[in-house]
Amino acid sequence: MKALAARRQDRRAPIVLLLLALLLTGGLYAVLAPTSADATPVKASTNDIDTGEKLFQANCATCHGPAASGTASGPSLIGVGAAAVDFQVGTGRMPMQMNGPQAQVKPVQFDQEQINQLAAFVASLGAGPAIPTAEQVDPALGDVANGMLIFRTNCAMCHNAVGAGGALSQGKFAPNLWATTPTHLYEAMLTGPQSMPVFNDANITPEEKRDIIAFIDQQGGTSPGGLDLGALGPVSEGLWAWVVGMGLLIGAAVWIGAKSS
């Protein structure tokens, strides 16, 4: 006990304590943080518009109106199509958790069957883009190089060169694309959620959309040079040059300087 009391006076003690506290906080967070629900895609059941309507009335009508024709707090959903519903609900953006610059991704609230039922109901209100087939979004069938060219002309100015995400005005932002499923990527291009423009099939053909998906799949998050540092470009590189590089070198200089005297 006496040894412990003596050590407490050591000037390294606060650093050790701080590290321990950080470790403990991090560990607790890792254990206690809620895990995100993973919606597994289920084959759409036979037309279940009625169930979809009930779900709609219970969860969506407050803002979008009982007839889905929109209110002051939510847009009309007539003609937005099944693709929009699958994207918005399937990524957890809808039902919206809170008002803000834009709807944020959160744990998905429905299973894929319920999402399909909701989508079927909304699709029945008016013609709109449908959920793409598995073949339409298969990254293996796309041309990566063509995807790169289309991506950097149409997408990179908001989503960053490889889809790491970027800022928009007034707190809105273009999200990171690496964890988004190919189906949701396709639907987003087709329906243009929130600040995103619509890229219809005349603008970017279905094949080209698949090329883009192939590019994101091939390049997003891969990094031949080592840790990608967020793929954010020179700012994060500069930050790490100072933190890691200068940190280690100044540490070594202090050590060498202390060695002789």
């Binding site: 990179a156 100015m157 908001c158 020179p234 700012v235 590189e237 500069g238 930050l239 040059a241």
Partner: peptide, 9 residues
């Protein structure tokens, strides 16, 4: 021009 276009630090 891609988002996050910045020069070295």
């Amino acid at each position: 021009v891609s988002a996050g276009a910045q020069p070295d630090w």
